[in-house]
Computed example of a mutant assay.
Amino acid sequence: MKRLDLLLGERELGPICAALRTAGAPGYSVMRHVTGVGKGGEVQESMEMSGYGANAHVIVFCEAEVLEQIRAALLPLLNYYGGVGFVSDAQPL
Score class of each variant (00 low, 15 high):
Gly41Ser: 03
Ala23Asp: 10
Ala23Met: 12
Gly38Ala: 14
Leu4Phe: 02
Lys2Ile: 11
Leu8Met: 11
Arg21Glu: 14
Ala23Trp: 07
Arg3Leu: 05
Ala18Met: 09
Leu7Glu: 07
Leu4Ser: 00
Leu8Lys: 03
Leu7Cys: 07
Pro15Glu: 15
Tyr28Phe: 15
Glu45Pro: 00
Leu8Gly: 04
Tyr28Ser: 07
Val30Trp: 00
Lys39Trp: 07
Gly24Met: 07
Leu13Gly: 03
Glu10Cys: 08
Lys39Arg: 14
Gly40Pro: 01
Asp5Ala: 12
Val37Tyr: 15
Gly14Lys: 12
Thr35Cys: 14
Gln44Thr: 12
Gly24Arg: 05
Gly36Met: 08
Arg21Ser: 14
Leu4Trp: 04
Ala25Glu: 04
Glu42Leu: 13
Gly24Thr: 02
Met31Arg: 01
Leu6Trp: 00
Gly14Ala: 13
Arg11Lys: 13
Val43Asn: 03
Val37Arg: 15
Ile16His: 03
Leu20Tyr: 00
Glu12Tyr: 12
Cys17His: 04
Leu6Ala: 05
Asp5Trp: 00
Ser29Phe: 08
Val34Glu: 11
Leu8Phe: 05
Arg11Pro: 01
Gly9His: 06
Thr22His: 13
Ala18Cys: 08
Ala23Leu: 12
Glu10Val: 06
Val34Trp: 10
Arg32Asp: 05
Thr35Phe: 14
Gly27Asn: 07
Leu6Phe: 04
Gly27Leu: 08
Leu8Thr: 03
Leu13Ala: 08
Gly24Phe: 07
Lys39Phe: 10
Leu20His: 02
Gly27Pro: 03
Pro15Ser: 11
